[in-house]
């Protein structure tokens, strides 16, 4: 049965899908990106540590998480952990799985960005009395941030779209909202296209923000 686009349904669904975006997709993206990034810095520093065991643990973490599908990780956390008596609601399960996943990818970006800061910067910081931690916070990470913004923007934009996988662990977000409206009406094309447009708009906004961030962080570099 061919139906084409049901414009009335498009108008009706805009509101509920927007709610799915604002109440589901965006909070999940924002929270997991912040947690993931914080964890990424820790993992990157572990990886750069001179202590071999610490660096090996970080390496193993990145290897396992990057080497297994995100969907499988999500299923292990939500459907697998109950076998060990750990039953999580959709929100915490999604936050854990996505944060752990993002951190693995972002840690490599952070590590490369830290290594891109010249060694002389660490030395100059040391000669004015800074500890390694202070030098990292005041001197190295601010400069690493400039290098990291373009690749981290990639990570963030991927994350926005990947959160649609959270629908499989019953977390209510944009895509699950679209599925639920589509199911009784059979208007799959219409609903999924509206959802796609919403994702695209969010990514457009993020690309714009990336340009702004790059300009801001690049203002101390000769053109």
């Amino acid at each position: 049965m061919e139906q084409g686009v049901d414009w009335a349904l498009v108008r009706e669904s805009l509101g509920p899908l927007l709610r799915g975006l604002v109440e589901g997709t965006i909070p999940l993206t924002a929270v997991t990106f912040v947690l993931g990034l914080a964890l990424a810095v820790v993992v990157a520093l572990m990886r750069l540590s001179g202590v071999r065991v610490v660096s090996a643990v970080a390496r193993a973490y990145v290897s396992v998480v990057r080497g297994t599908p995100l969907l499988v990780q999500l299923f292990i956390v939500f459907y697998g952990l109950p076998s060990f008596g750990v039953t999580l609601d959709p929100w915490p399960a999604a936050v854990i799985a996505f944060s752990v996943n993002v951190a693995a990818y972002a840690s490599e970006v952070v590590r490369a960005a830290i290594l891109a800061v010249p060694r002389g910067q660490w030395e100059a910081a040391a000669t004015i009395g800074m500890s390694r931690t202070t030098a990292l916070r005041r001197v190295v990470l601010p400069q690493a941030a400039r290098v990291a913004v373009p690749p981290l923007s990639n990570t963030l934009i991927s994350l926005v779209k990947d959160t649609s996988l959270a629908s499989t662990v019953l977390y209510t977000e944009l895509f699950r909202e679209a599925q639920q409206i589509a199911a009784p009406t059979f208007q799959f094309f219409t609903l999924y296209t509206v959802a796609a447009v919403y994702y695209w708009v969010v990514c457009l906004v993020l690309s714009f923000a990336q340009t702004r961030a790059e300009a801001r962080l690049g203002r101390y570099v000769a053109a």
């Binding site: 100059a124 800074m130 400039r146």
Partner: peptide, 27 residues
Amino acid sequence: SGMVFQSHHLFPHMSVLQNVMEGPVVV
């Protein structure tokens, strides 16, 4: 001791004044 490097190693993301103030204020 204070140290002056061959290739200065100024902190590029800080103004000239911030570069000079960083040690006394932060450390």
